[in-house]
């Protein structure tokens, strides 16, 4: 039986830190970082993904990535997804905030806004095929509002990326929304009450209470969606396979790795992507940290 003095709390501290971190870190290392080591290793080889043998090729793969346009052109389209990630966060934040206050039919709205994220991705390709095709769902909606002669959403190379970002937004908004909703519910209610007495309006409550309280979640969402915008994959892969000017770096990586059996090259591309994303994250983190430093203990 533990009769606890200060000293045994110190011992407990160690026990609890080690035992509580053991499994999470073991899983993280085994399935997260061990494979990354392999990825770095193969990036210096010409391995084809199958053969027992391969050759070391030094930095050849990396040189190719930065000299062959085919490999780096995918990054240009990231700009669309980058902008899209801010739009997505803003909309998610808006809905999460208003649905945290009294709204009639709250559960209904929450459920419906989250609905697109619940759909199995097998159906997503079909949904947007019919959504974007001429005289499809979108054109019919626009026609209802008197907009005739809409553009070809996927055929027009100037619009295709915007269409795909829109589809991604539809798909992933719900996750951001629920996450932020959860985060907002952590804000102690007495804070609102106090603010209400002080006559703060909803915007002030959002700006000075909610946002600062959940900035940690907002920042991690931002990090993940911005790093995600460097490597958009699911929606463009399903919808276009990267054709018609919608290619992304990750789609190119998949093609290189599996269609051409260039596993070494694909690994090198993944390494480049990883380093870029890490760099973006580090830059972003320093910005957010400087904005507000808050000590909890």
């Amino acid at each position: 039986m533990l009769r606890l003095s200060n000293l045994s709390y110190r011992a407990q501290r160690i026990v609890i830190i080690v035992s509580f971190s053991f499994i999470p870190i073991a899983l993280l290392v085994t399935f997260g970082y061990l494979p990354v080591l392999g990825m770095f290793k193969y990036s210096f080889t010409d391995w084809n993904g199958l053969s027992p043998s391969y050759h070391w090729v030094g930095f050849d793969n990396f040189k190719t990535i930065f000299t062959d346009e085919k490999y780096y052109e995918g990054f240009i389209n990231s700009i669309y997804y980058f902008v899209g990630s801010f739009v997505q966060l803003a909309i998610a934040l808006y809905f999460a905030t208003i649905l945290s206050f009294a709204v009639r039919g709250k559960s209904f709205f929450k459920g419906v806004l989250f609905f697109p994220s619940m759909i199995n991705s097998v159906a997503v390709g079909l949904i947007f095929l019919f959504f974007f095709r001429p005289e499809g769902t979108l054109d019919s909606i626009l026609g209802f509002f008197g907009i005739t002669n809409p553009p070809h959403w996927l055929l027009n190379p100037k619009i295709i990326n915007i269409s795909l970002v829109g589809a991604s937004l539809w798909r992933y908004l719900g996750f951001n929304f629920i996450l932020l909703l959860g985060a907002i519910s952590s804000v102690p209610s007495d804070l609102y009450e106090a603010a209400e007495i002080d006559g703060a309006n909803r915007w002030h409550q959002f700006r000075y209470i909610i946002l600062p309280s959940i900035r940690r979640i907002v920042s991690v969402t931002l990090i993940l969606s911005i790093s995600g915008s460097v490597a958009p994959f699911e929606i463009p892969y399903i919808m276009t396979g990267g054709s018609n000017g919608s290619n992304t770096f990750v789609i190119q990586t998949v093609k290189t790795t599996f269609s051409f059996n260039k596993y070494g090259m694909g690994s090198a591309m993944a390494v480049v992507l990883f380093l870029i994303v890490v760099l973006v994250t580090v830059i972003q983190k320093t910005f957010i940290k400087e904005e507000k430093k808050n000590d909890r203990h």
Binding site: P157, G241, S243, N244, G245, K255, F260, N261, K262
Partner: peptide, 23 residues
């Protein structure tokens, strides 16, 4: 594989059609 021409891949065929329709 080496040339990444992709005889059995869709890439250059899609490019051809995109070029043909003016994209």
């Amino acid at each position: 594989n080496d040339s990444e021409v992709g005889i059995h891949n869709p890439d250059f065929k899609k490019k051809l059609i995109e070029a043909a329709i003016g994209n």
